[in-house]
């Protein structure tokens, strides 16, 4: 396998981003998660988060959340300048504890969804969305 100078440069940048991001961005997201869960443990099952693996434009990224039996779902974009995205609170007339919307992602990052269940427990799902940079500014 051959690496061009350009590839090497890109990999170096990628590595730099990976190294720096978790420290820079996750603190604010962690604070919001703690505020939502009160520090409770979160199960891995019980909530589904659907988002594209690669978003064609970070300005409009379709996502869906689905957590049967939840009363509320918090959605966070951990790499955005402010991580908050939305909180869905489901009322008694909700037909399901699911919703879809379109969100802004400032760059490649993890999107996190946390459901609060009717029994007070929590469940978490997370997925990485790669945000591509267009070829043309036009």
């Amino acid at each position: 396998m051959e690496f061009s100078r350009r590839d090497t440069l890109a990999m170096g940048l990628g590595a730099a981003v990976v190294t720096v991001l978790p420290f820079r961005v996750n603190a604010a997201a962690d604070d919001q998660i703690a505020a939502f869960t009160g520090g409770a443990d979160m199960a891995d099952a019980g909530i589904t988060l659907t988002a594209p693996e690669i978003a064609e434009n970070g300005n409009t990224v379709p996502i869906s959340v689905d957590a049967p039996g939840a009363t509320a779902i918090l959605v966070l974009a951990t790499g955005n300048p402010t991580p908050g995205v939305a909180q869905f609170n489901f009322g008694p007339m909700a037909g399901s504890q699911a919703a879809s919307t379109r969100i802004r992602l400032a760059g490649t990052q993890d999107v996190v969804a946390i459901a609060q269940m009717a029994d007070g427990s929590f469940a978490k799902a997370s997925t990485t969305v790669k945000v591509t940079i267009g070829g043309c500014g036009g």
């Binding site: 409009t60 955005n80 402010t82 869905f88 609170n89 009322g91 007339m93 909700a94 399901s96």
Partner: peptide
């Protein structure tokens, strides 16, 4: 008069906010 959905939106919601959900 009964709640289906009460959603808090942050600036990360895209221009022309779109929401899809289900109701009884």
């Amino acid at each position: 008069g009964e709640s289906v959905l009460d959603m808090t939106m942050e600036p990360a919601i895209s221009t022309n906010p779109y929401v899809q959900f289900e109701a009884k």
